[in-house]
Design a protein around this nucleic acid. Structure first.
Lengths: 284, 284
DNA sequence: ATGCCTTTGTGAACGCGTGCACAAAGATTG
DNA sequence: CAATCTTTGTGCACGCGTTCACAAAGGCAT
C-alpha cells in the first residue's frame, strides 16, 4: 500500500488497532455508497465484499467500535456511517494546508475527495514568489513567508507536503514549529519529526518499485527453469555455500553475471546476460 | 497451490517477506544518495538512520538478500545499490501506461521519480476525445480506443489508473484483458482482478482520514480529563460496562459531544454531495 | 600471530493481525 | 410461545513481522 507512519513509542493506546483504523475509511466509503442507494441494512458478508475484505475481519474490526450490529439482520447503514465518521473524527472540520503547488500540489488542490470528507483546503502555499496570488483550484496561492501566520489564523493541524524532496524537511520543520501535528508527505524523503507528530507518506516511485518486484517474480516463474539452473551451477561448481540456501542462489548469480556488478552499474542498465536471476526475457 | 514450502523457513527461494520488499526502495534511495556523495561504505546503523528504520530490521532485511556486508566495516554502497536494484527488477526497463489524464494523471506524467528508476511512461491514455493529441509532459495523449494496441505494441505490463472512480473498474478490466499484470490504482475504488494480477492502491482521502483519527485522539488526550472522568463515573456508578474499555470510551464521548448521534444519523447523507469520492481527478 | 575492536548476521521471544469456527442473540414464522 | 433460521461477536490458533541480544567474523594495531 501507500503509507508508513513514523514509529509511535509509548502511547497507551488502549484503542483501536492501527490496521483496523486503516480499514475504517474503506468501510465508510462502501457504506456511503449504500446509503446513497438508500439501502437500510447490510450484512457483514455484503459489506465485506464491497470493501474488498474478509467478512470475519470486518466483524472483528467493528467489534472494536462496539456492538453496532443486530444478529440475524446485519448493520444499520446510516447508523454505522455515523459511528465510523465519529470514530475517525470526520464529524468535525479539518482545515488543511498544501505546501508546494507544483503539478502534484495543484492536482491535490483540485482533488474532490478532500472536501467530501470534512477536509477543507484552508490555504495553498508555495515558495515561488511568482506564484503568489495565482489562483489554483479557485484559491490564490500564498507565499511561504506567511506559512506560520496562515496556520495559526486558520487553526490548521494537518499539513500536506508536495514540495520537491530537497525542500521537504525544511518545510516540515516550519510546519511543526507552527503547530502542525499531522503531516501527509508526498516528497520522496524521510522526514524526521518530534514525538507527537504523525507522518504518513505517499511515495509513487516506491509503489511502482514494489510492483516491479512482483512483476519480475511473476515473469521469472514462467521461465522458472533458469532459477533451477542457477542453483545447479552453484552446487556443481562447488561454490562456497555460505549460511543457507537462500544465499546460495544469490551467490550463484554473483558467480556468473554479477561478478562485474560494480562495473555494470557504471553506465548502462542493460543486463541481458547470463544472469540466472533476472529473467532474460520480458513478458510480452 | 504453494505445496512446496510447507514446512520450511522462508529463507529459501524468492521468499523475501513482503514487508522487506516494501522497504527495499527506501534503502535504495538512501544508498543512491550516499553513492552520489561518493561514500564507499556504510554501516547498518548509519543507513538505517538515513532510511528512517531500525538497524536490526535493516540487517535482517538484507539477510534475506544474502550476506552482502563485511563485519567490522559495513556495506559497500555501490555493490548494495546494484544488488537491491537487481532484486527489485530495476535493472530492466519497465514501460508504463497512465490511464486517465486529469489533474492527477498529468501530475504523474510529469513526475520525475518514474524515469529515474527505470520506469518509462510509454503512453498517456484518456477517454476524452478532445484530449487526444494534446501534449502532456511532452507526449501526446492517446484515446482509450487504442488502449489494447498501445499495451501490446509497447510490451507494457504495468498500468496506472488515475481515472474517476466510476471508470476505474472498466479501465482495469480492459487493462487486464490486454495483458497488464500490475496495476497502481489512484481511483478511490476497490478493484477486482483475477489471480495473478497485482494491485496496489494509493488513496489520498484515506490517508487524510487516518491522520484525522490520530489527530482527534491526540486532541482528546490533551483534554483527556474528560475521558478519565467518564470512566470513573461509569465504575463508581456501577454501570455495567458494555463490551470493553474501548466501547466505554466511545460511550463517554456520546454522553458529551455526540449526544445528538441518533438525530444526526437520520440525516447523515446531507453533508456530502453525490460526488462522494467519485472523482479521483476530473478530466481537465 | 595475537588480541582488541567494530559490525554483521541470526536465533529466539514477543506482539500484532488474520482467519476459522461456533455459540449466542435476535428476527421470523407458524 | 416454541421452533427455526440468520447473522453477529469472539475465543483461539497460527503466521508474519519486529526487536533484542549475542556469537561469529573480519579488520587493524601491536
Amino acid at each position: 500500500m501507500a503509507t508508513g507512519r513514523t514509529h509511535r513509542p509509548a502511547t497507551r493506546s488502549r484503542g483501536i488497532p492501527e490496521a483496523t483504523v486503516a480499514r475504517l475509511p474503506l468501510y465508510l466509503r462502501a457504506l456511503t455508497a449504500l446509503s446513497e442507494r438508500s439501502v437500510p441494512t447490510v450484512s457483514s458478508e455484503e459489506l465485506a465484499a464491497a470493501a474488498g475484505v474478509n467478512s470475519a475481519k470486518l466483524r472483528k474490526d467493528f467489534s472494536y467500535l462496539g456492538s453496532y450490529g443486530t444478529r440475524g439482520v446485519g448493520y444499520d447503514v446510516e447508523y454505522l456511517v455515523y459511528q465510523i465518521s465519529r470514530e475517525l473524527g470526520l464529524t468535525q472540520d479539518w482545515p488543511v494546508v498544501i505546501v508546494g503547488i507544483g503539478n502534484l500540489g495543484a492536482a491535490l488542490a483540485n482533488y474532490g475527495g478532500f472536501a467530501s470528507r470534512g477536509f477543507r483546503v484552508a490555504a495553498l502555499i508555495d515558495a515561488d514568489p511568482n506564484m503568489a496570488g495565482t489562483p489554483v483550484a479557485g484559491m490564490p496561492v500564498q507565499h511561504t513567508d506567511d506559512l506560520e501566520k496562515i496556520i495559526e489564523d486558520n487553526g490548521v493541524s494537518i499539513g500536506v507536503i508536495s514540495t520537491p524532496a530537497g525542500a521537504a524537511q525544511q518545510v516540515c520543520d516550519r510546519l511543526v514549529a507552527a503547530g502542525i501535528t499531522s503531516i501527509l508527505n508526498f516528497a520522496p524523503t524521510v522526514l524526521s519529526v518530534p514525538d507527537g507528530v504523525d507522518v504518513r507518506k505517499v511515495d509513487l516511485s516506491i509503489e511502482l518499485q514494489i510492483l516491479a518486484f512482483h512483476e519480475q517474480r511473476k515473469a521469472g516463474e514462467e521461465a522458472g527453469a533458469e532459477v533451477v539452473v542457477a542453483d545447479a551451477v552453484a552446487e556443481t561448481a562447488g561454490v562456497d555455500v555460505p549460511v543457507d540456501e537462500g544465499a546460495a542462489e544469490a551467490t550463484a548469480a554473483e558467480a556468473t553475471a554479477a561478478e562485474a556488478a560494480p562495473a555494470a552499474r557504471t553506465e548502462s542498465t542493460d543486463r541481458k546476460g547470463p544472469d540466472g536471476d533476472v529473467p532474460a526475457v520480458m513478458p510480452a
